[in-house]
């Protein structure tokens, strides 16, 4: 079982990102689960969401304390919370930032992607969740690009979906090129 923890701010779609990942894993033929940390959601407040991917039905329903991956949608969170808390040393961190290198309190690999720029270029708004999932798919191989795109098409109305599919693809390619 792989456990993924998402960190974002209200309005950036971290909860939807976790949902999309679980949907994509399901489309890949796996079992999956996604849920938010259920804060009192408001724009800008730190938000945590969780996803699990497994080959069998996922019974565990506690929050994730020792993730295999963390996905950080907002670089400013690094100063506020210990996003890497519990991250497995064999795991990976994916950070949205324009910087090419980020120091995190972890032995795990740290990767960056400028998802805000991709979101602004493709969507025109700084909502980075779909770009982050695209980059995540390229970085980890835990879900296929096709399934992520299918999940996006399922989740958003048509026009919005196509723009977000584009954001997924751009981020996927950009991440792939970095590896």
């Amino acid at each position: 079982m792989k456990e993924i923890r998402f960190h974002g701010r209200g309005g950036q779609g971290a909860v939807t990102a976790a949902d999309l990942l679980a949907m994509a894993a399901f489309f890949d033929g796996k079992y999956s689960q996604a849920f938010p940390s259920f804060g009192t959601e408001r724009r800008g407040a730190p938000v945590t969401a969780f996803a699990r991917i497994s080959d069998r039905f996922i019974r565990l329903r506690s929050q994730i304390y020792e993730p295999d991956y963390i996905v950080v949608q907002d670089p400013s969170l690094l100063e506020v919370i210990d996003v890497a808390a519990g991250l497995k040393s064999t795991g990976k961190a994916l950070i949205n930032t324009e910087k090419s290198e980020i120091k995190l309190n972890t032995e795990a690999e740290v990767h960056t992607i400028n998802a805000t720029r991709i979101a602004l270029d493709v969507l025109g708004v700084p909502i980075v969740n779909t770009a982050m999932i695209g980059a995540f798919a390229a970085l980890t191989g835990e879900v296929s690009l096709e399934s992520v795109i299918k999940a996006v098409r399922r989740r958003f109305p048509e026009k919005l979906a196509e723009r977000n599919v584009r954001a997924v693809e751009v981020a996927y390619e950009e991440m792939e090129a970095k590896l």
Binding site: A18, Y31, F38, F57, R61
Partner: peptide, 10 residues
């Protein structure tokens, strides 16, 4: 509530 209502699963 939330633990099931807001959880995505198969």
């Amino acid at each position: 509530g939330f633990v099931l209502t807001h959880t995505v699963e198969p």
